[in-house]
């Protein structure tokens, strides 16, 4: 659907990461990259969001909360795994708090690899996600 493609409202969900990805996400909102020209707005509440942007490893602490946040989001909703940690745990894979890759907790639509991915990668990933939206 045309309207859904042109106005993805994003909620940024930092889990147990090192904050590197979060800074890159915020950088994508700055004047240099300006994602608002694609209709992307950052929202603070899952009720307003279409896309959940998950960064960092899924820890035992955050797992249930992640599921609850996903259930709070109104349909249709999409999940983007941002950064290597969200995809497979990266260097934290053997840690005691690690609770599985993100796609075992939530249905992930798009993976954006990198440690951390650049803001261009976020824009590209969102673009690929929206190509799939119909």
């Amino acid at each position: 659907m045309f309207a859904r493609k042109k106005s993805p409202w994003v909620m940024h969900l930092p889990c147990g990461g090192c904050n590197g990805c979060d800074i890159e996400v915020v950088a994508a909102l700055t004047p240099r990259y300006d994602v608002e020209r694609f209709g992307v707005l950052q929202k603070g509440t899952p009720r307003h969001a279409d896309v959940l942007l998950v960064t960092g490893v899924v820890t035992a602490q955050v797992k249930e909360r992640l599921k609850r946040t996903y259930e709070m989001t109104p349909n249709p909703k999409f999940v983007v795994a941002f950064g290597s940690c969200a995809i497979d745990g990266d260097i934290f894979r053997d840690g005691y708090g690690y609770a599985g890759p993100l796609d075992e907790v939530l249905p992930v639509d798009t993976y954006i690899p990198g440690c951390p991915p650049r803001p261009e990668a976020l824009i590209d990933g969102l673009n690929k996600l929206l190509q799939k939206v119909r």
């Binding site: 309207a3 042109k6 004047p31 608002e36 209709g39």
Partner: peptide, 16 residues
Amino acid sequence: ARIGPPCYQFFIDLMK
């Protein structure tokens, strides 16, 4: 110093 949303953005948001 950004470009900003296109002029139909408000209506697109409403439709969505």
